[in-house]
């Protein structure tokens, strides 16, 4: 029986890094919306749910775009998973910190 050809790590790297970018953007917008009343208002895509719609909406859109772009760039390639995972964890950690109320409330206008 012939052994299966190993799959390159590129597409997995793209998915992981794109998800990290998405959660970072949600965190970043959560804090920036406290810094800028104008941005908070711009993120209010649907009044009943307020700026949460824009913060998460932009986060999801950026995540999907990042996934598409990184996925195309890494298609069929092998990625440096050590670097990808390091950057992904940095972005996820920043995303977590920036959505933590005692942190983003430091920036309330």
């Amino acid at each position: 029986m012939m052994a299966e050809k190993p799959k390159p790590s590129g597409p997995a790297a793209a998915a992981i890094l794109a998800a990290a970018v998405g959660v970072f953007v949600i965190g970043l917008l959560t804090t920036l919306a406290e810094v800028s009343a104008g941005l908070k208002s711009a993120l209010n895509w649907w009044n009943p749910a307020g700026p949460l719609t824009g913060k998460t909406g932009v986060g999801v859109i950026v995540w999907l775009i990042a996934w598409a772009v990184l996925g195309a760039g890494y298609r069929g390639k092998t990625a440096d998973m050590r670097r990808i995972t390091l950057w992904s964890w940095i972005l996820i950690l920043l995303g977590l910190v920036l959505t933590f109320p005692p942190v983003f409330e430091l920036f309330v206008e």
Partner: peptide, 13 residues
């Protein structure tokens, strides 16, 4: 309301 959105993005990855 903010951190909850991390779950589906990470779970999809």
């Amino acid at each position: 309301e903010h951190v909850g959105w991390f779950a589906p993005i990470l779970a999809t990855a």
